[in-house]
Write a protein that binds this DNA or RNA. Structure first.
Lengths: 343, 343
DNA sequence: CTTTGTTACGTTACCGGTAACCTACATTAA
DNA sequence: TTAATGTAGGTTACCGGTAACGTAACAAAG
C-alpha cells in the first residue's frame, strides 16, 4: 500500500498580466484590452503581446477578473433535482455545452427535490458571485427568493413552466402534456384508467402532468379510477412494482398513464411477465420519449420532449439576459404526443 | 410575446467583511477568523459577530478569498466523458455530494472522450485556480499534462485504473473484469464467442475490458471469433443493431460479451425479437450492473460495479490530498461478476 | 520579580485583474 | 488656421478577503 504525501501547492501559474506587459513593453491595461478584445490597440502591439503570452504560458486569472469587476464573472450555477436522470442529465449537458460555447463555466448542484438543499447550494453558489443561475422547478424556499433578490442575480427557471417567473423561464407545458394524453386515451375508448408515478415531494415537478391528465379524464366523464404513488424515485423497477400494486388493487383497469417512460417500460415488462395483453387488455402510456423505447417489441405510446431544447434555450436566454439583450419572459418548448403500439 | 430588458446588475450583496466588522466593533481579521473558525477569538466576540452577520445578511465572497490567498480555493473541476450516461452520471453525483459535504464546489465538464476538448476545458478551469481536478480516463494531451504540472494542481484520475497515475487514481480494474468474464463464459462451455461494443475513440475508456476478455479467450484456446465495433455511443439501440450486424456475419456464435449492460440489454431484445434462445443457443453478458436489468424476464449475467464507490472515494482521496493528509496512490474499487440467467 | 507563553485581538500589505479617467499624437472638419 | 474627433495607449484606484506579523493584557513558571 503506497501512500502519497505532498507539499502545499504554491498555485502560481506561469506569469501574470504584469509580467506579460513588462515582457512586451506595454502596460497591464493594454494586455488586458487585447485579451478581452475591447479595442484601443494596434495590430502590431497585439501580435507582440500575443507572442509573449504564448512564450510565457500565461493562464488568465478569472478569479481576479471576476473579483475585481464583479460584472465580468463567467460562472453560471445550474441546479437540477438529480444528475442521475436521463432527462435532467441531457438538460445539464445541453446547458453546459451551450454556455461553454459562449465562454461561461457551469457550476452544478443537485437539490434532490428539496428546497432546503437548493437553498443551501444557492448560498454557496452566491459566494462565488455568479453571472447567473439556472434553477429547475418553481418551488423555492422563501430564503432562496430573498437571496436571489438581494443579489439581483439573473435567474432562469427551467423544466416546469412558470407563467409568472422570478425572472425568465424555459420549459414544457406539463399540464397540457397530461391533458392531451388523457384525451388521447379516452379517444381510444379507454374508460377505467389509472396512474402510476412517484410521490411528489415538496416540489411540483412532474405532478402537473398528473393534474392535467386527471382533468382531461374528468372532463370526459370517466375520472381516474386508481392512483399508485410510490415513495421512491422514478425507475424501471418502480414502474414494475407500481403496476403490480395498482393492478392488485384494481384488476379491471383498461389503461395506465405513467409519470415517465422509464416507469411505463417497467410497467410494460410487468404486464409481459403476467401475460397481460397490451394494448388489448390494457393501454400503457408514458412521457419523455426515452431512447430505450426504440428496442421494445412494441413501440411505447408517449410524449416526445426535447430535453436538449430546454437546455439549449435556457442557456441562450440566460446569455441574452446577461448581455442585456431583450429576451422572452417565458419560453415554451413544444412537446409531441406520439401514438405507439401500447395504447 | 413579452420581452424583458434589464438593467446591469450591480451585483452588490448585502454587506462585506468590513461592514460586519464595523457593526460588531472589531477588525475585519477577527470576523474572518471567526468565519473560518481558525481560533484566536472569544466566545463572546463570536456571538456578537455572528449576530451582526445574520442581521446584515452577509454572504461571504469566496471570489475574494480564493483570489487573495490562492490556497483557499474550494473549487474542484470534474471532467467526465459525458454527463448523459448512467454510469458517469452516478459518479458525478457521488463526487458532487461528497465534495459538497466537505465544503467544495464542483465545476463540471464533458470531454466527449476527446483529449482536445478536455484540454480546452482544463485551460478554462485553471483560470479559476481550482483546488483540485478530477479527470476520467488516462489519455490526456501533452498540453494537458504540462498545464497540470505547471499549475501543480492536485489531480485524481478516475474510472480507468492507472498504475502510474499523474498524481492519484481511483477506478476499476477493467482488464480483470473482462478477463474474468471471458473465463466465466469458457467455463460455461462457450467456444465461439463474439464481442459488441463501440469504437474506442482516442481514449482508452472501456476498451481495456475488451482486451482482458480477448486475452482470457485466447488463453483458453478459444479466441474471439468476431467483433462488432460501432461508430456510435453506447445505447440500447446500439446493442440491438450491433447484435444484428454481428450475427448476420457470424451466425453460429454461442456467446456475446457486450461493452456494457445497456448494449447487452439491447442485444437481448434483438434475440428475443428473432426467437433466439437465450442462453440455450447464445449466451449474453454485460458489464455495469444496470438497474434496468432487474425488470428483465431473465436476469442478465453481468459485472456489478459501484459507480457510487468511485465517486465517493475519488472525492475523499482528493480532499485528503488537499489537506496534505497521506493517501493511497491507487485505489482499486472492487467489482463482482454476477451470473444471471443469460449465460 | 522577571521571563516566557498564551490569548485575543489589530495593522499592513498584498493577490491580479478592470473601470474610469487621463494623455499624447494624428487626422479631419469648419 | 483652429477646433473637434479619433486612436493608441498609460495611470490610478479600487474590489474583499487573508497571510504574516505586531501588540497589549494576563497567567504561570523559574
Amino acid at each position: 500500500m503506497s501512500s502519497k504525501k505532498i507539499s502545499k501547492s504554491p498555485k502560481k501559474i506561469g506569469a501574470n498580466l504584469a509580467q506579460v506587459a513588462d515582457a512586451a513593453g506595454v502596460s497591464k491595461m493594454t494586455v488586458s484590452r487585447i485579451l478581452r478584445d475591447s479595442g484601443g490597440f494596434s495590430e502590431n502591439t497585439r501580435a507582440r503581446v500575443m507572442r509573449e503570452i504564448d512564450r510565457l504560458g500565461y493562464v488568465p486569472n478569472r478569479l481576479a477578473a471576476a473579483f475585481g469587476s464583479e460584472t465580468s464573472s463567467t460562472l453560471v450555477g445550474v441546479c437540477v433535482p438529480r444528475v442521475t436522470s436521463r432527462l435532467y442529465g441531457e438538460v445539464l449537458e445541453s446547458i453546459d455545452r451551450t454556455l461553454f460555447r459562449f465562454g461561461y463555466q457551469t457550476l452544478i448542484g443537485a437539490n434532490e427535490e428539496l428546497p432546503d438543499v437548493e437553498e443551501k447550494w444557492l448560498r454557496g453558489l452566491l459566494s462565488w458571485r455568479p453571472a447567473g443561475v439556472i434553477l429547475s422547478g418553481r418551488n423555492h424556499s422563501a430564503a432562496t427568493l430573498e437571496l436571489l433578490k438581494a443579489s439581483s442575480t439573473p435567474v432562469v427557471e427551467i423544466w416546469d413552466l412558470n407563467t409568472s417567473p422570478l425572472d425568465v423561464s424555459v420549459g414544457f407545458n406539463h399540464f397540457d402534456c397530461g391533458y392531451e394524453m388523457g384525451h388521447f386515451l379516452i379517444g381510444r375508448g379507454r374508460r377505467r384508467i389509472g396512474y402510476v408515478g412517484t410521490l411528489p415531494t415538496t416540489t411540483t415537478m412532474g405532478s402537473t402532468r398528473f393534474e392535467g391528465f386527471s382533468k382531461a379524464l374528468t372532463a370526459a366523464g370517466h375520472p381516474l379510477v386508481a392512483t399508485e404513488l410510490l415513495h421512491d424515485r422514478s425507475s424501471f423497477y418502480a414502474g414494475y412494482y407500481g403496476t403490480e400494486n395498482l393492478l392488485s388493487r384494481e384488476n379491471n383497469l383498461d389503461g395506465i398513464y405513467y409519470q415517465d417512460d422509464e416507469m411505463a417500460i417497467g410497467g410494460l415488462f410487468f404486464c409481459n411477465s403476467r401475460g397481460i395483453d397490451i394494448p388489448g387488455q390494457l393501454a400503457i402510456a408514458g412521457w419523455g420519449g426515452m431512447e430505450a423505447a426504440s428496442i421494445l417489441p412494441q413501440r411505447l405510446t408517449t410524449t416526445m420532449v426535447s430535453t436538449h431544447g430546454v437546455g439549449k434555450q435556457a442557456a441562450e436566454v440566460l446569455v441574452a439576459r446577461l448581455r442585456d439583450e431583450p429576451c422572452k419572459e417565458v419560453v415554451v418548448v413544444p412537446t409531441r404526443l406520439v401514438p405507439g403500439a401500447t395504447a
